[in-house]
Design a protein around this nucleic acid. Structure first.
Lengths: 154, 154
DNA sequence: CTAAGCGCTGGAGTCCACTCCAGCGCAACT
DNA sequence: AGTTGCGCTGGAGTGGACTCCAGCGCTTAG
């Protein structure tokens, strides 16, 4: 058989052995078989399943939700529900990516700003940008930059 | 002067008041002024800074690293270093986004799979996909996809 | 047969990033 | 003047997700 041991799965996925065992205890990996001696044996299907769980976790689905997902059986009556849950999560991932992209431009703007200041050999004074944690008098005002209303996430 | 109080900053950014105070204690927000009574006053620049920190945190930069970033002064000699740090982080964000996109396709593939099974009214058998977390019991010559009753016994 | 390893289990410990008080002071309506 | 309420501080508590044992049992190489 091409079933593999826990060490191999760890190597294949990058999840630690402890994490794999912990996921199983927590009910995220229900289809791991054992060999007579009691050791875990991961069938190719089980390995694929580990990868799905890994994808869900890595994309921010809480362990609790993965468990709930896993626990609804594989029977016909659940396929729709499962698909819906995954779809919901997929949308969450997309929103997350969009947020990261917005944050990325904030960071890149900052980089550009620094590069410019570095070139000109200026401290940032009127633009602020960063603190000097010394005492500082108040700067004259400057206007607001438009912000996207964001809600705390992740 | 259009400086604002902590409540407003909380509303503007979505960060909780406690979090704002905690960030400050932890050295992530060095430029917050106080009014005579001791209350925090956030200048527009300070608010912008909060937004930068928020972007860094939301994109996964550990608090420790944000602090390190913040602590290197705003002097000329540091602009290059700061920019380099940010650049490094920007690349990390890009890698993260790429990973999310890969994981997203994993999830979407799974959705497609479920939709298909749902349409055909099939349980997943030869593809497995999900567990049978029944009692392990005795399966002498159990092999790979040997989907033993994958019915959930809820 | 013995020893070295890997794996197993249950449980404790750790880390991170907040979040939640308790107790107090200023502020400002009425 | 009173009282209602926001804000402040220091510190304790929480939740999530692992990570790290200790102690034991197969398995296998010598």
């Amino acid at each position: 058989m091409d079933a593999v041991g826990i060490r191999k799965v760890s190597e294949l996925t990058g999840l630690s052995i402890d994490t794999l065992r912990w996921y199983e205890r927590e009910g995220l990996l229900p289809l791991v078989e054992r060999e007579p001696g009691g050791r875990r044996r991961y069938s190719p299907a089980a390995v694929r399943f580990v990868r799905l769980v890994q994808a869900l976790r890595r994309t921010g689905m809480p362990v609790q939700d993965v468990r709930a997902f896993v626990r609804m059986g594989s029977g016909v009556e659940w396929h729709g529900r499962r698909a819906a849950l995954l779809e919901e999560h997929a949308e969450a991932i997309e929103r997350h990516i969009a947020q990261l992209q917005r944050d990325l431009t904030v960071v890149r703007d900052k980089i550009a700003h620094h590069r410019e200041l570095a070139e000109r050999g200026l401290d940032c004074e009127d633009e602020i940008d960063l603190a000097e944690h010394g005492s500082r008098a108040k700067s004259p005002d400057d206007s607001e930059a438009g912000g996207t209303g964001d809600t705390t996430e992740e």
